[in-house]
Design a protein around this nucleic acid. Sequence first.
DNA 1: AATAAAACCAACCAGCTTGTTTTTTTCTTC
DNA 2: GAAGAAAAAAACAAGCTGGTTGGTTTTATT
Lengths: 239, 239
Amino acid sequence: MPRSAAKKPPPANIALAELEPEGLTSEGQGWQQRKSAQTRVAILDAAIDCLEKHGYARTTTQLIAETAGISRGAMLHHYATKQELIASVIDYAFYKRMEAFIDRVHGLTEEQRVHQNAGMEVYWQSILTREYMATLQLSVAARTDAELREILLPKHRKYDRVERETVLAAFPEWSSKAELFELSMDFCIASMEGLLLNRDVWDDRRRRVALRALISAVILMIREGQFTPPSPEAYLPNG
Amino acid sequence: MPRSAAKKPPPANIALAELEPEGLTSEGQGWQQRKSAQTRVAILDAAIDCLEKHGYARTTTQLIAETAGISRGAMLHHYATKQELIASVIDYAFYKRMEAFIDRVHGLTEEQRVHQNAGMEVYWQSILTREYMATLQLSVAARTDAELREILLPKHRKYDRVERETVLAAFPEWSSKAELFELSMDFCIASMEGLLLNRDVWDDRRRRVALRALISAVILMIREGQFTPPSPEAYLPNG
DNA sequence: AATAAAACCAACCAGCTTGTTTTTTTCTTC
DNA sequence: GAAGAAAAAAACAAGCTGGTTGGTTTTATT
């Protein structure tokens, strides 16, 4: 029942390499440890599935165990409490998503990567994943759940930095304009998240058009240096 | 304990007027009906509070009743089931938010409204409300809760149309370019929602910069007609 | 081969949530 | 003023969740 264990491509940058989850490599020593790693990966993947399909509130330990194909007791042997499990899920989901992102970027041709701004499309792909949806569910839940927020927020802040480094490492030609690049990233992330949220209520055409507008806006922003608002702070009293 | 009942400004457009919630006017006939309306408003406001502060999953009937300052039995007298209550909350929150939006737009000078694009700032204000947050919580919950989705989705689609009409009615000069205006609205809504979600993890400056970039992008988009992406569909295989 | 440890499983308990039912209070109306 | 309806409160029943506990199988060690 355990799913295929995580592959091991060489970590693409230092910041990400440090975050590689432990105890999940199925190449280790004894049969027991290998089995244990497989089970853990199965549990984490099951948890991501549950988070994506049922949201944080309905992701019960029972449901995760069923999805993973093991008993609840077995699961609680590997992750004593739900908090512990969720913490591991956060790390696992982020690492897996970044890994996939890097893989996809490496799959681009130089032409696509530099001149066709395909990076944004790849990033959008990384947002359409189970892993990202699971993370988003946790983020929203954390907003109203102090306990979860205490676990998630520090990790989120750290991963925010690592994500910047990772993306910048994948597009080294922007290193000289790091600040502008990161502003564009922020803008891009926020907009794509919002787009993702409206997926259900908008039709396909509408989403496509909005996404195209977004990508165009970012390209323009990054080309021109920045937009020049007519009266910068005039209509931004608070927020 | 019941809060101040809803004021009654003349509805600003037809589509919105049809949606005015019933049974909430505290000017009606007998004392009992007035009291009943006050209690209902108190319950709905309490529910919005709870949704914003605790999320959908933790918004229990018990908690709503406590927040409203009444017993749970009293609440279930007015709204027999939780579904019924939530359905009313959706209507109430949307109507209240649109009402406030219209009020704020009417409060703008012609200079602000037309030449300074203050409409977007006003819209951002309407997103920073308890009502919007409560709605957002419901939206996210509905994604993984079939029962809730059946209640929310049709309302959401309807309100999406009404919102377009309402905003367009507030900015009639755009009627001739309705399609472009609505595309800009979509883009604006998605981006602001995403921005709202990242409120906790980003610092104040970062949010401000991203918001400014967003507003600038929309202004540019609406001025230039549309952005011209280098290769429109090239990097949009799916999504 | 025997002991220790890891992995796994099943049952239980306390707390909470929702919806129903019953009772009490308050207001309307004849 | 009294009967009846509406509103509010309280008590009850059934189901689910998370964490704990005790027991069983499998693997590692000596």
